[in-house]
Simulated assay, not measured.
Amino acid sequence: MSEAPEQVGGKPGYHHGDLRNALIEAALGLAREGGPDAVVLRAAARQVGVSPTAAYRHFAGQGDLLFAVKERGQQELADSMEAAASTEPGRDGPAVERRLIAMGWGYVDFALRQPGLFRAAFCGAPEAVPELEPDSTGNLCPAGGAPAQFRSFDLLVEVLDELAASGRMAAERRAGAEVAAWSAAHGLATLLLDGPFAPLAREQRDAMIEQVLSTLAAGLTAS
């Protein structure tokens, strides 16, 4: 029989039986509201209705909880990219190019819909981030063959590989294309959230997103 979590202040407390996931869900709510700085283990424990002592049985500290939130943020970002890309299911070159643009929209849209979680998804965390190194073709991949931490990166690599395989993108442009594409989408998202583009009206913002992503795709596929 599992040990019951300690309750706080005589409250009914937590009875579900999966305290770790309950704490992560509470921390995700904190991140959505206030970004990575709001992810505090004691605050998550208070929301769930257990003592900090009970929370520390599942997380070594605040950094450990923040890393769990970071991973979930990355998962939701990748889900947004996949959902956007699914609207362009074709396999010919033009369809793959449209899918690349749609995937960029999914990336930036997630940042604008979930700014707190987006910031948490890319915050510093105590766990080591796998290093990226060029493979035999010059494309970036996790060092030592380790699985990529960011599924969003995997999705980008896949669509760029498809773009090259379709003949839409010249083979000599494939190496390092993920760096240009990721930098464009992430940089734009950051400028729209925290930079000089933040005050733009929605129509202006959407036009800017379309222009940046279309320009990126045109550059990658230029003959």
Rank of each mutant, 00 (worst) to 15 (best):
A4N: 10
E6H: 04
D18I: 03
A27S: 06
E33K: 15
P36F: 02
V40K: 15
V40G: 15
A44I: 15
A45S: 12
V48W: 03
V48Y: 05
V50W: 01
P52H: 15
T53G: 03
A54F: 05
R57D: 08
R57T: 08
Q62Y: 05
V69N: 12
K70C: 08
R72K: 12
Q74T: 01
Q74G: 07
D79C: 15
S86R: 02
P89L: 04
P89D: 03
R91T: 03
D92M: 11
D92R: 03
V96F: 15
R98S: 11
I101E: 01
A102Q: 01
M103T: 13
W105D: 15
F110E: 00
F110G: 00
L112C: 05
F118A: 05
F118D: 00
A121N: 05
A121M: 09
C123G: 10
E131S: 08
E133M: 10
E133S: 13
E133Q: 15
D135Y: 08
S136C: 12
G145H: 07
P147A: 13
P147D: 09
P147C: 06
Q149A: 13
F153V: 09
L156Y: 00
L160K: 00
D161F: 00
R168C: 02
A171D: 02
E172N: 04
G187R: 12
L193C: 09
F197K: 10
A201E: 09
E210Y: 05
T215N: 07
T215H: 09
L216N: 01
T221D: 05
